[in-house]
Amino acid sequence: MMNMQLHHSAWLIALALLGCDGQQYVNPGTALLTVSHDVTGSKLVEGCNYVPVLQGSQIQKRYTVDDALEALVTLTRSDITVTFEGSGAGAPPFRATTKELENGAVVDDSPPDGYTVELGSGCVPEDP
């Protein structure tokens, strides 16, 4: 019995030394943009994107909120910016840092009239 335990332990140590302790992945962060209707509370957009890993990388994605409003989200590895077009063009861009997202969701304090805009994390992106 003792022999078997020793054999098992030696095998685990050997595997760890050889690096056979499971595959390693990049695991980039994610950012979830949510746009909801103030009156109905219904979610009009739920868009999940990777937060880029490399310096200089960028993701730009446009979401149609409804007939009157579009949101353009731009992600770098340090910042996320949401700008509004259409009826929401008067609203200032909504900016958050990726560090802020690590501490929880960030709500836009001056969204387009009639909408609630929020950035969160911990989602599963579709293909870019």
């Binding site: 992945y25 990049v26 890993v53 310096q55 990388s57």
Partner: peptide
């Protein structure tokens, strides 16, 4: 940066 087929990013 690339892992084994799960994520690749090129800048």
């Amino acid at each position: 940066i690339s892992d084994v087929g799960r994520y690749t990013e090129t800048s």
